[in-house]
Write a protein that binds this DNA or RNA. Structure first.
Lengths: 365, 365
DNA sequence: GTTAGCACTCCAATATATCGAGTGCTAACA
DNA sequence: TGTTAGCACTCGATATATTGGAGTGCTAAC
């Protein structure tokens, strides 16, 4: 893991050169490229070490070296720590003008693809990863309960539950406690069947109420499952700019994946952070095999989440060759992320009304 | 143009063989393949003639022949006239089960792509090509007019127009006449700015009313312009099954076009029939250069229109190499067309409600 | 009009030669 | 001990023959 500063410098040089050229990098090149005045022979020795450590590899004897996934990872992590470049201003005007949310998103993803020369993807914002804030059951009369559910971002849902038999104020309080202790702070995705049956058991005779409360919660994410999550992509044709991706087999697989957009949903999960380390900006990088999607083994994928004012989240991402310009891509994502937050947060939000409906007809807490 | 039956047979043999193999066809192959017992030498002579006539071409001396666009055209026309194969039953169950219109269409296009091994496209049904049936202005009182517009397929729209000044029964009759004579029978796409200003001029002081009537008509096609016509595609990756399409350049262009779906709108115009002859089933074939889309010069495109019960029309199409299995493709399209008509026409229409709204809240004529 | 036969063409596949970038290793050097 | 010059060696990439065979066009005979 530990690399002395010289190895680190050589490693960086190798990667940077390779990012530019896409061809194996030889010792002589490095010898000239870097400012540490070392002969190619010395570099060779170091490279030999780096290879042994698994950071670089030779496609064949008597060829230069190319970075391994591990090597890229080193570089990317290094990059994240070192530099936080200025975020170049983005022409948000172009975006703000359009009226419909959908159109905005389509434009954004197109912009990303054009700016980076890679393939871009974007998931429409949804509530799925928001958390339950609190639940309030109020007894209206012995046979009716008012159920209010508040979700992160102050999305409010209410609903009257009709009962088959009378219920006491006490019982309502008990249920309130149960539901709040068990559900509060959970993201909508966290509430699984196991948990549900668990709660129902505890609720005993009042499991019907639990059901209705859960239904109400479910309404927020109604139809927002992985399968039909709205995902837009753009710049699929950019893969043809990179020979390592444009051979028939790879290209075909990639195109399929981009078409079956739901396969991309695996990248759109802001919660679990097993692979693809998340930096402070919420930017993740998946290098080669780190990707959860089979067809992207020869790609790198960089994603970031954006947030709308009312707590909805979405993801933007870039798919490109492993030798992508990580810095540029990350900066682009950060910019877009910031711009999206701005555009939607600022009063000129161009289309959120559709999504707002739900909270409007209840009056917010 | 005129080919004796022997040449015709040889031509067919050449194409059929080429469709299967994708490789230039030699005289010996034909000599053996056909039942007309002719030596390869004779075939050679005939082929020489066919080449001179522009139906086939040699990629290079000492190679077999491949069909030209003209040759394909001959074959396709021939095909249309000769055979009308049985339409194989399609599993409409799979389709009917889904609920949302959009989902149905997505499934259909996927099905098409899978069945044919080519790329499939489908435009969602819209009213754009329907015609204005009649317009009825009724004077409710001196300051109000009831405007009723009926579109092909009995789509009814009504609307009350408030006036700034009084209007007489006479004037209303006049306007009625004007609007009906000028607009009836026109498709919604035909009503252009020139025509409009023309009518307004004739209407003189009442041009405001014309405006409102036109607005009502426009509502039917609101947001259904070429640019945001809903188009679905599937099986883009199938192009990689055909070497002549999967070289980087071609593939890239094709993928771009499929992504910018609005470019496909050119195929979705049921009206104008300049190129791509339409057969009695509404099936059109665009071979190579006949295609209105630049990036498809190396492809053939076969389209068909389908109709929903209430007069909405959409288009389905297949994009593949020139040496596609035209027969299979056309049959597939016909089947799908028939199935769509059935599914939507039959009571079990799975989702048209969204689209019906418009006529529902008026009561149909 | 049809066919056998033959010389000719030219792509495609295979083998062969050449080049050079890059390596690993060794020995010398500071 | 770390660095470097030097050298033999490897091996892909590129260019250059070599060959085979599918297919043609033409001619002469049937």
């Amino acid at each position: 893991m530990e690399l002395d500063s010289r190895k680190q410098k050589i490693m960086d040089a190798i990667i940077q050169t390779y990012l530019k050229t896409g061809e194996p990098v030889g010792s002589r090149t490095i010898s000239k490229y870097t400012d540490l005045n070392l002969s190619s022979a010395t570099i060779r020795n170091e490279m030999s070490d780096l290879e042994e450590m698994g950071y670089i590899i030779q496609p064949h004897t008597s060829a230069g070296r190319i970075p391994t996934d591990k090597g890229y990872r080193l570089y990317v992590d290094h990059l994240v720590n070192e530099k936080t470049q200025q975020v170049t201003a983005m022409n948000s005007l172009m975006i703000a003008k359009t009226t419909r949310m959908e159109e905005v998103l389509k434009q954004v993803v197109k912009l990303l693809a054009n700016n980076t020369n890679y393939t871009a993807m974007l998931s429409a914002p949804n509530y799925k990863h928001n958390k339950v804030k609190f639940i309030q059951l109020s007894r209206l009369n012995p046979r009716q309960i008012l159920n209010v559910v508040v979700i992160d971002g102050n999305i409010v849902k209410n609903h009257i539950i009709d009962l088959n038999e009378d219920i006491t104020e006490q019982q309502v309080l008990k249920l309130n406690l149960l539901l709040n202790t068990r559900l509060n702070g959970l993201s909508l995705a966290d509430i699984n069947l196991g948990l549900i049956s668990n709660i129902k058991e505890e609720a005993g005779v009042h499991s019907q109420i639990v059901n209705e409360v859960l239904d109400t919660i479910a309404e927020v994410i109604r139809a927002e499952t992985d399968e039909n999550m709205e995902i837009y992509t753009s710049g699929a044709n950019n893969i043809f700019k990179y020979p390592e991706l444009s051979n028939s087999e790879n290209a075909s697989k990639l195109i399929s994946t981009l078409e079956e957009k739901n396969l991309l949903a695996d990248f759109m999960q802001p919660e679990d952070d097993d692979k693809g380390k998340k930096d402070d900006n919420g930017v993740r990088v998946y290098i080669g095999d780190e990707s959860p999607v089979e067809s992207m083994k020869d790609c790198s994928v960089v994603t970031a989440t954006y947030e709308l004012g009312d707590g909805m989240q979405g993801t933007i991402g870039i798919i490109g060759p492993k030798r992508m310009d990580y810095e540029k891509v990350m900066n682009n994502l950060k910019t877009v992320k910031a711009t999206l937050n701005q555009v939607f947060d600022g009063g000129t939000s161009p289309g959120i009304p559709e999504k707002h409906e739900e909270s409007e007809d209840n009056g917010t807490s």
